[in-house]
Every structure is written in C-alpha cells, then in structure tokens.
Design a protein around this nucleic acid. Structure first.
Lengths: 200, 200
DNA sequence: TCATCCGTTGACCGACCGGTCAACTACCGC
DNA sequence: GCGGTAGTTGACCGGTCGGTCAACGGATGA
C-alpha cells in the first residue's frame, strides 16, 4: 500500500465536496484525483467508472442523512415533524457555510442532471429518495395516529409532499441565491398548514 | 442565406428538445448542430457560446409558459389556482408523451446542473423563475382578496411554496419514474390544504 | 524465504469537447 | 451592376475527457 490505505475514502470525500460545489458534468476524474491526492490508476482500481463514484457519493450522503434523521428528537409527533425540517435546515446551513452559498441537495442535484442520462444512476438515486421518504412517512404516520394531522391528510402523501417541498425549496434557494434558513422556514410553514389547529 | 434563414430557430428548438431528453453536460454543440441540420460555424454565428444557447432555450420556455399561464382560465380565484396546477400538469404531460417519460422542468434541470457552475446562466434562470413566481403571486393575491385562503396564509409565501412544490414534484417524478398526472394531483392537494374549508 | 496480492504509479490513448477561421454565397439597398 | 452584409460552409485546433495498462512495491501468510 502507498500511504495508509484510505485512498478510497479520500476519493469519495473529495468528490462529494466537488460535486456539491460544482456539478457532475463539470467535475472531471482528474479533478477528483487531484483533490484526493491520488493517481488516476488508483481511482480506477476502486471505481469501474465515474458513474460508480457518483453512486458511492450517494451512499455516503444517504448514511449521513439517515443518521441525522434518526437522531432528530422530539416528544410529540408534531414536534418530530418539525424536527425533520430542522434537520434538513441544519444540513443545508452546514453546506452553506462550507461553500459560501446554498449548493443544492446531493441527491437532487444528481437526480436532475443524470436521471435522463444514466439509468442505473437514476435508479440508485431513486432508492436513496425512497429511503428518505420512508423515514418521513414513519413520522407522518405517528402524527396521524396521534390525531395531529388535519382531517383528510393522508400520512403517506404528506411524506411525499414534504420531500417534494424540501427538494423544491432547496433548488429555488440554490438558483435564487437565498439562504438555507429560508428553506427551513418554508418547510415549517408547510408542516404547520397540515397540522390540526391547536397542535403544537 | 443558405436555406430559409430559420437556422437560429431550428438550433434553439432542436437544443430545447435535446436538453429535455438528456442534460446540458451530455448534449454537445455537435449534437445540436446535427439535430438542427446546421454546420458548426453557423451555430457560432448566432451564439457566442454554448451557455448563450441555453439562455435562448430558457427564453423560449419562458415565453411558452407565460402564455400558457395567462390562458389558464377560471372564474373564481380558487378555480384559477387549480388552473395553474392543471397548466403545469398539461405541460408535463405533453413532455411525457413526447419523450416517453417525465424529463423534468426545463428551468429546474438547468438550475440544478448549472447554478453553481455558470453565474450568468444561474441569474438568467433565476429571472425566469422570478417571472413565473410573480404570475403565481398575482393569482394568490386575488384568492386572498376573495377570502378563499385559510387564515394566516400569506399570498406571496404561498406563491413561492407553490413554485417550490412544483419543482420538487417534477424532480421526484423524473427520478422515480412516476407519471406527469401524479405531479398535477400533488399540486391540487397542496392548493386544497391552503384553501379555506368550503371554498370551491 | 518466497510467492501472492492489493494498492499504487505514471505514461499513454483515441475520442470528443467547445470554439475559430478564411473563404464562399446569396440577398438587398443603392 | 455593384458593394456591403448576413448567413453558410467545412476544415481545423488545442485541450481535456474517461479510461487503460504494464510495471512496481510492500505487507502478509505459508
């Protein structure tokens, strides 16, 4: 082994950073190798193609997100719902301070750019979204059982709606140059309008 | 003039089609020229760069969208609100039948891929979104004046929320392989929860 | 001690990228 | 008829792209 054997991890982390600050198409394998201080041959030792690297990056973000969502506390179901909005806001705020601006959602960025280009990658991102939505759905169902949801609000559909809203808000903040805090505020509003009057 | 002098238009229309079916990064200037049956020199006679072509495509879609939104009829303000959801659904359904799948929003796709890469392009797309949101806002304000909106719902914030939701739903449909009809349904639901009970 | 194997290196490749250019052509106003 | 000009053509360019490969090195286990 050359140095410490953490080359693969350095590659994934470096490309996660580069993909957020730019885009899949504008980040070359050479860029990634330079940022990770790894030679190209090593890169292709770990990843059969650039697309596979992107999948690894998706997995990295998926693990991080699911951890964060699980850690999001909250006593009542309604508070838990607001907790996920806070979690999303916290992640975006962290990206914002790291890159100096809202740079989008790691999943959403790849989904928008590559869904129509690489079908296996599309499928991979879709799975990540599905897991994310399932986490939301669990919380929505709990809120439903607690009677915190407005009449006629279906928990599964609310979960999907929440995810869509998250993606849309982040995208608009990215293109419009808004702040990550606005994203969180918008999500809180969306949640409130779905909660029964008088719920926390 | 070589043929009929409609080269520029052919270029824009061909690249509008290619950008929707693929992505900015995966569509080359050569691809566009081939699809438009135009030689590369002609392309660069009309557009100083590939990015400028993308701006022209944005303008094309902006005009089409604003026309469509203006044509969306509706007697009551609430019906008008649902009318914009139908308009979005109709556009997406048309794309779906043209390309065999949901291919995303022309603005959203470019916003996600290029906001962090090309600042002038980002600004151009942001302007298009701003005009779109303003159209939504006009209708939301009308609904507000008519007392159709739930208490505490701010019309401007609702317009932004509606736009975000539109983008998010389209993105999720694109990556998840859902239908354009689902997008419209989701938008109708979002509108309904913001309307006062008993409003049409 | 030695073979094995994972990781590493750097040179290399053909294709394709966005973009340029000088020459040519057909129209239009004069 | 003639000059100017908008449009067109095809050859051309340097750079970069994703990806390949043979050779090498150092730890590990027998």
């Amino acid at each position: 082994m050359g140095r410490t054997g953490d080359s693969r991890e350095r590659i994934v982390r470096a490309s996660a950073r580069l993909l957020l600050s730019r885009s899949y198409g504008s980040v070359s394998v050479d860029d990634v190798c330079a940022a990770a201080d790894v030679r190209k041959g090593s890169f292709y030792h770990f990843f059969p193609s650039k697309a596979d690297l992107a999948k690894a990056v998706v997995d990295l973000h998926t693990d991080a997100l699911l951890d964060r969502l699980a850690a999001a506390a909250g006593t009542s179901a309604a508070a838990r719902l607001h907790g996920v909005a806070d979690a999303v806001g916290a992640i975006q705020t962290r990206f914002e301070s790291r890159f100096g601006r809202v740079v989008g959602c790691p999943f959403g960025n790849l989904a928008a750019e590559l869904s129509t280009v690489d079908d296996t990658l599309r499928d991979h991102v879709a799975s990540a979204f599905a897991r994310w939505e399932r986490e939301f759905a669990v919380i929505c169902h709990r809120a439903h059982q607690d009677g915190a949801l407005r009449d006629g609000v279906d928990p599964d559909r609310l979960a999907h709606s929440l995810l869509a809203h998250t993606q849309g808000r982040i995208l608009l903040a990215k293109v419009g140059g808004h702040s990550a805090a606005d994203v969180a505020t918008g999500l809180h509003e969306l949640i409130d309008v779905h909660l029964r009057e008088g719920a926390v």
